[in-house]
């Protein structure tokens, strides 16, 4: 299991390599990237902040939950950036390997969906005329 919260760029090829397993016929990945607009506003860059200790703990918890739900999971990797990211940068990578493809899609989606709900990481969008903490207010 590879779990990482990092202020350095994520090497996606290395992550895919890390989940290779002889018993796996499928490797599935989700790569979250920084896009240039949000709710109609032009985004200049993003700032990610994390509660480091809890974020790593919860990232690991999510990966372990996926292993419990899909016991055939061979390898799991979840990496998330923090700090300032520019348009096109990779913010998060989830990668799993499984014997067959169906479980790989399901496990990968479960991990990214749950991560977004529970892991204490916050992003602040920077526009040309201000900043907003995403999803903070109703």
């Amino acid at each position: 299991m590879l779990i990482q919260l990092t202020d350095q760029p994520i090497d996606v090829a290395a992550v895919l390599q890390a989940v290779q397993a002889d018993g796996a016929g499928a490797v599935n990945s989700f790569i979250g990237t920084i896009r240039n607009q949000s709710t109609g506003r032009r985004v200049v860059r993003l700032h990610y902040e994390a509660y480091d200790a809890m974020a790593v703990h919860q990232l690991r918890r999510v990966a372990e939950q996926a292993q419990e739900r899909w016991p055939m999971l061979q390898q799991v990797a979840v990496l998330h950036r923090k700090g300032t990211l520019e348009i096109g940068d990779v913010a998060v990578v989830v990668a799993v390997s499984t014997p067959h493809r169906a479980e790989s899609f399901a496990a990968c989606q479960y991990i990214i969906d749950t991560l977004k709900e529970v892991v204490p990481i916050w992003k602040k969008e920077e526009y040309e005329d201000g900043t907003v903490w995403v999803a903070a207010h109703p």
């Binding site: 979250g32 990610y48 994390a50 509660y51 200790a53 809890m54 974020a55 998330h80 913010a91 998060v92 990214i112 991560l115 977004k116 709900e117 529970v118 892991v119 204490p120 990481i121 916050w122 992003k123 903490w133 995403v134 999803a135 903070a136």
Partner: peptide, 12 residues
């Protein structure tokens, strides 16, 4: 205890 306030998370 180690205590923290957790506003709405927005990772990913």
């Amino acid at each position: 205890d180690e205590i923290a306030l957790i506003p709405p998370v927005s990772g990913g």
